[in-house]
Amino acid sequence: MKKPIFDPAGAVADIPDGASVMIGGFGGAGAPVELVHALLDQGARELTLVNNNAGNGGVGLAALIREGRVRKMICSFPRSSDSRAFQEAYLAGKIELELVPQGTLAERIRAGGAGIPAFFTRTSAGTPLAEGKEQREFDGQLYVMERWLKADFALVKAKRADPYGNLVYNKTARNFGPLMCMAAATAIVQVNEIVELGEIDPEIVVTPGIFVNRLVAVADPQQEERLVAQGAVYP
């Protein structure tokens, strides 16, 4: 099925206050800068965001936090070369943090997309991050129960899409993108180019189009780490 194509503003126009939004990227690699800035322009507040990190510099996710749009951050590593925006909000008690081990974060998102409400993992057993969670012994080892993670929206960056939303990514910019597309009710994907049907070999499709709801073409996307290096601030 053909997926609707939007500009960045149109793609995020219906994200309401209080929405949960997964944002792809590992640091700057895969960060959908144009979609995140469109979300900032759109004005939604009280957001719960899911990302590996918690923003860098004065652009993208960090700008959303700085502007007070984020109620809660679910991430594994809220530090970066310049994580001031998160740090200030966190220390001022203006943002809630749910810290999740990186593999557990990935698997919770995958589980959310795959209809698996909970799973058990060794990760965090015996540590403070397991406190308050159900633990169970399997074959003599202690495992921690983790719940699936779903979201209302995902903002993801890929390299190329066909009109059906089949995606390929660019190197390590793939990271959480395929998982977040699965786990969000509405997956919004920005790509460098939308090619004709049949131009992506089915053997190399990474995210099948069934997981994608909206496409946005951004021919020459901004790279978050370049903006951070320049000291850019959005808006």
Partner: peptide, 23 residues
């Protein structure tokens, strides 16, 4: 910038490298 390690530092792909998602 799309080819980095976990420390977000640039790396290179060696022959025989494989790319995959986080899960």
């Amino acid at each position: 910038p799309d080819l980095v390690n976990a420390g977000k530092k640039p790396v290179t792909l060696l022959p025989g490298a494989a790319l995959f998602h986080h899960a």
